[in-house]
Design a binder for these strands. Structure first.
Lengths: 336, 336
DNA sequence: GTGAAAGCGCTAACAA
DNA sequence: TTGTTAGCGCTTTCAC
């Protein structure tokens, strides 16, 4: 194994100079730096991660806590993880995979053993049991999602309120006057996460602002429920021409259900959704949607963490602006 | 931070005794061990990972190289990764996430810097560029999939040949006499991975053994191709009553296509597939299938790696026996 | 701008 | 069965 003393000898400098040349923590003359760099390359030197961590109390590793719960859209998690890994590498860090299952104990373990410098926690719940721990730990963390009480924490997520608004604005802009939100399952609104309520707020506010008639239907995520919801919606609001879907498993069956009730999408009914792009694209009638920006969430999380590790302060809350992609499921309202 | 000397003082023993009590690498008297354990608990001691790695040249971290390529079924990768992480923890190891993108350089980096002790490489190609490196590295690795030349490597995968056979045996057992394999896209057979060919071998051998009439159709993965294939199959083999599908994106559209050609599944046509269970279950007519045992592959990989790290020798090739799950898409052949 | 040297916290000889 | 101690390879004061 090549070590720093080997490089130092080869370059005719002291080990500390090699170290400083690598870290840039003190000025090195142009000439010395080049000799050192040449020696490093020539000898194929790679600093020993453990030794470095021991001496510097920095491991250059981030923990990423990944959810296992059902109801999570797997490709989104994957995309997020990949983005975190890629971005971390750009900042000279690696990523340690932690399962949700390991819980608070797992977080404490990797922090106390100095395995990681910081952590990213996905799938944060309203009353997440890990919150007190994360607050008390002396290592920085970033949460994906917003708990009920976010004081002293750094959180990031899609701006779901703005996403709900954006969907409605788009429908209103196309001339639709009666719109409905098919939302997440009822239990989501009660416990767990806040994003579902935020969508409702945005949807309702924007409908109001635009003078639309609107209604909200929380809905079980079972595809079987789709036909019932579609039928109920049309019964209650025969003039309905715009629908916002915030319920992944329901999207495809719902579009089918409307068509089977004799409504063309987008001819008679325009549909927008808040869901992963790939889902929106995979429906038979590709759906105009606000994307869940998994990759951006990933890279932004890492960047927040890097700032915190660098001693900078960062905003406690970061909301990503929604981005709507036009697809085949929306059209101007038919002339009456 | 609590360190080993703190624990030693508190327990009235030497640091080495604490270390040995933790590692079990030399006998400790019952009484001493209990005092040490009590002190550890009381002080909340956690060994410093870096210090440990430095002194023992073992990081207790495994690298997991995850593919990014399209055409990979994401939930399977995720399931595999989770299984690796969970199993690794049972062996007191952690998992470092590496993207395919990092390539050989990434593998070399984490090994040379002693960040990881061993690695698991997913999505291995027939002529994978990483093979020479993996062979030359002095750290053990396990590959998921079989390259063309596996000498000196440890590989594990589903036994795709047996999977092909199993599907045919099942159809034959139900009385079907004319069967077809709808396989992976042509290019898969040419380059990349070996599993597609293995399925064909198993399929053909079993058909032969059972005296069945059989044919093989490699097929583009585009759903649009489904109708064409279905139509062609029925034209060439009007007596066809059994189909094996080894092509994830085609499964659902193919079943649809057959039904639109007037064939009931399983009334007129029995369908089996080799694909992730969740895909098989999600089709309108749930499909009898041989599962891709992602979780088992994950845990078995880790166990192989642990054996290798322990100095034991392991088989170069491990083939997991296929497991067929009966679902709604298969039935006895209609009386003629 | 550079060097010398004292640790970082742990493991594993070696010694008893 | 237990203790003493010399490193593991690096970073970072302190000194020049």
């Amino acid at each position: 194994m090549v070590k720093i003393t080997d490089v130092a000898r080869h370059a005719g400098v002291s080990p500390s100079t090699v170290s400083y040349a690598l870290s840039g923590k003190r000025p090195i003359s142009q000439e010395t730096r080049q000799r050192v760099e040449a020696s490093i390359r020539e000898l194929g030197y790679r600093p020993h991660a453990g030794a470095r961590a021991l001496a510097s109390s920095r491991s250059n590793v981030l923990a990423l806590v990944i959810p296992l719960r059902t109801g999570i859209h797997v490709p989104v998690v994957m995309q997020f993880a990949m983005s975190v890994a890629t971005t971390a590498r750009r900042h000279d860090h690696d990523v340690l995979l932690l399962t949700q299952e390991e819980g608070e104990e797992g977080l404490r373990r990797v922090v106390d053993s100095a395995l990681v410098d910081a952590m990213i926690v996905m799938d944060v719940q309203l009353d997440d049991p890990r919150l007190p721990l994360l607050r008390s730990l002396d290592r920085p963390s970033v949460l994906i999602g917003f708990p009920a009480e976010a004081d002293g924490l750094t959180c990031i997520d899609l701006d779901f309120k703005a996403a709900g608004e954006l969907c409605v604005e788009r429908l209103a802009g196309l001339g639709h006057r009666v719109v409905a939100l098919v939302g997440s399952p009822p239990e989501v609104y009660v416990r767990r996460t806040a994003f579902a309520q935020r969508v409702v707020q945005g949807f309702t506010a924007a409908a109001h602002r635009n003078g639309l008639i609107s209604c909200v239907h929380p809905c079980e995520p079972a595809p079987a429920a789709a036909a019932a919801v579609a039928e109920q919606l049309l019964r209650e609001q025969p003039a309905l021409t715009g629908v916002v879907v915030h319920n992944e498993p329901l999207l495809e069956p719902l579009v089918d259900a409307f068509e089977q009730l004799g409504l063309r999408v987008p001819g008679d009914l325009s549909v927008t959704a808040i869901c992963p792009d790939e889902l929106a694209e995979s429906v038979r009638v590709p759906v105009t949607s606000v994307a869940l920006p998994a990759a951006e969430l990933g890279s932004r999380s890492v960047e927040l963490l890097m700032k915190k590790l660098g001693g900078k302060t960062v905003p406690g809350a970061t909301l990503l602006a929604p981005r709507l992609t036009e697809r085949a499921s929306t059209a101007p309202r038919n002339a009456p």
